[in-house]
Amino acid sequence: MILLNTASAGTLESSDCLVTVSPAEKLKLEYKGANSEVFAERTMQLVESVSKKCCLSGAEISIQDQGALEITIKARLETALIRAVKGVAKE
């Protein structure tokens, strides 16, 4: 999977997250929010496993976590990646 442009998915509502992905050579994660410390490893693992599944060569990923469940972050990330591939900038 190669990203064509920047795309995002999600919201800044509580219990959701806003995921923004941009094309980049390597995988880079910026994880922000109140849980960024307690869930640093969990989220890194999640991003790595999604990237691997999608055969993502590289991406700059930013996650603003407003207290989302793991499955929510995963869904938002996958959606953002699909949008970045299709060239749909935002919702």
Binding site: N35, E37, V38, F39, A40, E41, R42, L46, L69, E70, I71
Partner: peptide, 9 residues
Amino acid sequence: KLTGIPRPA
């Protein structure tokens, strides 16, 4: 299972 395991402070 829903949240993942948080890292203790």
